[in-house]
């Protein structure tokens, strides 16, 4: 069974600290990491491979340095990496990103290597839009199931999963090929083995630009992004709080008075 996992590089800490004077990011010197939800997605793919055999492709759109993260995925159990890296992809919103990813998948389709199952993390910790999975599935014309917390059964033809819905949980199934997005709790990512680390260094990672995957330049990057950030601003807060002073026991007593005022 061939699976493909979509990987996003995210800052190692999502708490970007801003310098209040210059209004710029204070970098902590740490590198990017694989989005934790995608790490869980990869682990699920590895478990499926252990059960059914087959291979795993990891796919990312990102800056050239993202290759290192794909190699990390190889060291944990992926077989092959595909990186889409090109200035033409820069500034992509979710629509343009899912289009670029779909181009790589269309190339696999042409080569008769289209995966039976595509797994995405439910969301990326830096953006949290949770849009890429369903947009990619729609662009590829395959079914999607989001918010999957457990894969109950999978074969070449069909997958059965438990997913989280607005009213609880559901067990659903669909025909493959399909795309699922998974919660972070679905699996705990494993550490690379020693042999894995070696494979990570030498294993195949192909890098393609927009032309290399046959992408239509007008649908990539900024040009292909319907949304535009027009303005960022720091919200004004002019409000003054009433400070409750004193020792902690005095503060507690005053707070209890305040709460009493609300009938608590």
């Amino acid at each position: 069974m061939r699976t493909l996992v979509c990987i996003k590089a995210v800052p190692s800490s999502t708490e970007v600290k801003m310098d209040p004077v210059t209004n710029t990011i204070i970098r902590d010197g740490k590198q990017s990491v694989v989005n934790p939800f995608d790490q869980a997605a990869l682990e699920e793919a590895i478990c499926i491979k252990e059960q059914l055999g087959g291979s795993i492709i990891v796919l990312s759109m990102g800056i050239p340095a993202t290759e290192g993260l794909l190699r990390d995925c190889l060291s944990r159990g992926a077989d092959r990496g595909i990186l889409l890296s090109d200035r033409a992809f820069a500034g992509a919103d979710t629509l343009a990103t899912s289009y670029a990813l779909s181009c790589a998948l269309e190339q696999l389709r042409t080569a008769n290597e289209f995966p039976s199952l595509i797994i995405c993390g439910k969301m990326a910790v830096d953006g949290d839009t949770a849009q890429i999975g369903p947009e990619l599935a729609t662009t590829l014309g395959i079914p999607s199931i989001v918010n999957v917390e457990k894969v109950l059964a999978v074969s070449e033809e069909e997958i059965t999963v438990r997913r989280i819905t607005d009213l609880g949980r559901e067990i659903v199934s669909c025909k493959l090929p399909a795309l699922i997005t998974v919660t972070k709790d679905i699996r705990i990512p494993r550490m690379p083995s020693i042999a894995g680390v070696r494979f990570g260094e030498t294993g195949p990672v192909e890098v393609f630009g927009a032309q290399g995957v046959g992408a239509d330049a007008t649908r990539c990057g900024l040009n292909g992004s319907p949304t535009q950030v027009v303005r960022s601003f720091t919200p004004e807060r002019t409000h003054e709080a009433i400070t409750i002073e004193g020792t902690s026991s005095e503060q507690a007593a005053q707070l209890i008075d305040v709460l009493g005022g609300f009938g608590l």
């Binding site: 629509l95 949290d128 369903p134 989001v146």
Partner: peptide, 23 residues
């Protein structure tokens, strides 16, 4: 942006090839 809406909206946006802003 319920669980259902968060899946539906991107499916619609991708088919219509239009922009979608989350949350």
């Amino acid at each position: 942006a319920t669980n259902f809406g968060r899946e539906l909206a991107p499916c619609v946006a991708a088919q219509l090839r239009t922009g979608l802003t989350a949350d």
